[in-house]
């Protein structure tokens, strides 16, 4: 009887230990999530709308009244290789709290992120985006090439004759902004990482081209030269924190 009890105990132990062993080799979650918050500054100062309190590289004193744009084609890199990509198109209105996210990123350490400000040729087709009020209002007239505004950055500035408006609008194929930022971060399986994208509005007016509202012009829509300048300046408007 005693022997039987010992045998049963041993068998139970063996089963339990086997189970434990199995549990030990079950891998943890291999994917994690990322949420992104977008914040704004102008040359290091917090963005306050409708206030002529900023100065760009050309010395123009200006305010910001509107920042609407699209983000698309996100790519997350590790060691120069794309480890995660998303083709979601994200509309952003800077006056509304903006947060978006990506799910299922491989657990890994990443070193940089690239994305587009605007839409590429395949996406930039009139009425191709879901007909939300925001997308409809971002429409770029067919007779000017069709598709959508990639960016609407508007405000007022002071010239010698008083206060004037400016409207930095980018659209049309060829003027999409290829942007990105270096940032080392680790996505842990089963967890959500919070990233912050910080747009410096002043960077639209500098690097590589100093954009002077007084001499370059205050309205870019339909002006290929100005849209090109802005598009090239837009590459580094974002940093990631």
């Amino acid at each position: 009887m005693k022997n039987k009890i010992v045998l049963l105990a041993l068998a139970a132990f063996a089963i339990t230990s086997c189970r434990k062993e199995k549990e030990n080799i079950i891998p943890g979650p291999t994917n994690g999530d990322v949420t992104v918050s977008v914040v704004y500054n102008v040359g290091g100062k917090q963005l306050l709308f409708d206030s002529i309190m900023y100065t760009n590289a050309a010395g123009n004193k200006f305010s910001v009244t509107k920042v609407h744009y699209y983000l698309s084609r996100f790519r997350f890199y590790s060691g120069g290789q794309v480890k995660y990509s998303s083709d979601t198109i994200i509309y952003v209105d800077a006056q509304k709290n903006m947060q978006f996210g990506f799910t299922g990123l491989p657990a890994s350490t990443y070193d940089s992120v690239s994305f587009h400000i605007g839409l590429d040729e395949a996406q930039n087709i009139s009425n191709s985006l879901p007909a939300t009020i925001e997308n409809v209002n971002m429409g770029w007239p067919d007779m000017m090439g069709g598709g959508y505004h990639f960016l609407k950055l508007e405000g007022h500035w002071e010239d010698t004759s008083g206060t004037l408006g400016y409207a930095m609008h980018i659209g049309n194929n060829g003027f999409m902004v290829r942007a990105g930022a270096k940032k080392s971060f680790t996505v842990t399986g089963g967890k959500t990482l919070n990233l912050k994208m910080n747009m410096d509005i002043n960077e639209w007016f500098a690097n590589p081209h100093t954009y002077n509202l007084a001499t370059d012009g205050v309205y870019s829509m339909g002006n290929a030269l100005l849209m090109k300048k802005l598009s090239e300046n837009g590459g580094d408007v974002f940093t990631i924190e």
Partner: peptide, 16 residues
């Protein structure tokens, strides 16, 4: 009228 809060679109270059 060029008031301080006129929509920026209204006073753009060439249309002042």
């Amino acid at each position: 009228k060029r008031v301080s809060n006129v929509d920026p679109i209204m006073t753009k270059e060439g249309k002042e």
